[in-house]
Design a protein around this nucleic acid. Structure first.
Lengths: 245, 245
DNA sequence: TTCTAACTCCCCCAAAACAGCGAGGCTGCG
DNA sequence: CGCAGCCTCGCTGTTTTGGGGGAGTTAGAA
């Protein structure tokens, strides 16, 4: 095991970020991730996108055997790194995660057996519609060295995570939702109050209009949003950012 | 108007981030934001938290008159910076936003009249349950100077945004929701299909359970989410990031 | 082991939402 | 000026949801 790289100069960081920005496809991104791994002298460096439908996209240095095994075993659902980062705001050291459940410990043993490393640091990344990705560095080493490494490189890792995410999205624009059409002010009002749990009667009263009129707005919004019912329309309006509650 | 600061050395950035990390309350954070503003020589530098219920928390250098006016006019709903960043992944220059609507132009004129500046750069920040915050620098100046400034300082601004968010959350832990808000797998299934517009009968069929059983899940989810009806529950599940469609 | 939480099934009836039809006034744009 | 989009109001009948009960199994955690 080589010593971890404890510091990176501004110039080094700049050149890494530039290489990242210049990547033009998945293979190039993969190559950059390997360069980054070598630069930091960690065992692994991975970007992992988890889509709403359970699809995954990974890029990095994990062994293929582990990746396939991970997908096959549906580890996505029990991986404490995913679970923990999914409900955290900030980057997290793997030691801070909850490894107490039986499934988590089994997963951990399996991961270490596949050479993933016993130490790790993961940066959660989020998109406007609940999109979620992780940027992770992992390593096999003792706690002190790892603490020193993460303390020294945290800022760089955050920034690299950002740029990695940026590039990965650029390469897969289908993950970025299209900007749909807008709703009229009254439609926005209607959708907003409905999303707040008001019944049609309550919304109509709140907006000082008849319930019949309100219904026209709801139907119109439903039509614009391609929704089959009110709940669907509210869900779409929310996830497209057309209303905020 | 002073010239914008085009570069910051690693040492300067480090000292800024350390000051940020050392802030112990809102006033200290406010002070750091003013130091940052002076350091970058921009007109304004603001952190703006928008909660799902419409509450707001701001910290930065906007004039009090503008902040009060903003809240009073409920500009949150029409502010193109909020609207635009809410549906974007990455930091954005205000020029890239959609200012075409009448309300947006009126807002823009009002903002400029209050000294907000015609240029701006905003970094969206997200939390695990749909929490949303913005970190913004704004300035009064011409396009070329501003482009040069943002190109040179983008990375620093992203990092500072990160740390600002970290600190703001540390100072207001109540914004970090309690963890008990999770839904069971079946409840997630139910909410997800309902959000996709399925009727109860369709969801029950899809999940291969009786409609009665499904109703138990919906009611249970409604109870957990503190929702008064299905639409409300779906809206909350969505905006808390418990389901994704 | 005990206990909790999750999953599954069943009844009835009132309230709310949906679907289809139509109609008129207002504003802003080309 | 006409057109398009928005805002407003009405009727009738069918379908879907909500609220009130109760009850058994299984898997995992304390």
């Amino acid at each position: 095991m080589q010593a971890l790289t404890i510091t990176a100069t501004k110039a080094q960081l700049d050149s890494i970020l530039e290489a990242l920005e210049g990547a033009s496809d998945h293979d190039a991104l993969q190559a950059v991730s390997e360069q980054l791994r070598d630069h930091f002298r960690v065992d692994h460096l991975v970007y992992h996108w988890v889509s709403s439908s359970g699809d995954q996209y990974g890029c990095g240095s994990y062994p293929d055997a582990w990746v396939l095994h991970y997908i096959e075993q549906e580890y996505l659902r029990i991986d404490p790194v995913i679970q923990g980062c999914y409900r955290r705001f900030h980057p997290v050291d793997w030691k801070q995660l909850d490894w107490s459940s039986k499934a988590a410990r089994a997963f951990q043993a399996d991961a270490i057996a596949h050479g993933v490393g016993n130490q790790g640091y993961s940066v959660p990344l989020r998109g406007p519609n609940g999109q979620f990705a992780l940027f992770t560095v992992s390593h096999n080493g003792d706690d002190d060295d790892w603490s020193e490494f993460t303390a020294a490189n945290r800022r760089h890792l955050i920034l690299i995570a950002h740029y990695f995410n940026h590039k990965a999205l650029e390469l897969h624009p289908e993950r970025t939702p299209e900007a749909g059409q807008t709703l009229s002010p009254r439609e926005v009002d209607a959708m907003t109050f409905l999303a707040m749990g008001y019944s049609r009667a309550q919304v109509a009263e709140t907006l000082s209009i008849s319930e019949h009129t309100l219904r026209v707005y709801i139907e119109s919004a439903r039509f614009k949003l391609g929704a089959v019912n009110t709940t669907h329309a509210v869900a779409r309006a929310l996830s497209r950012g057309l209303i905020v509650i």
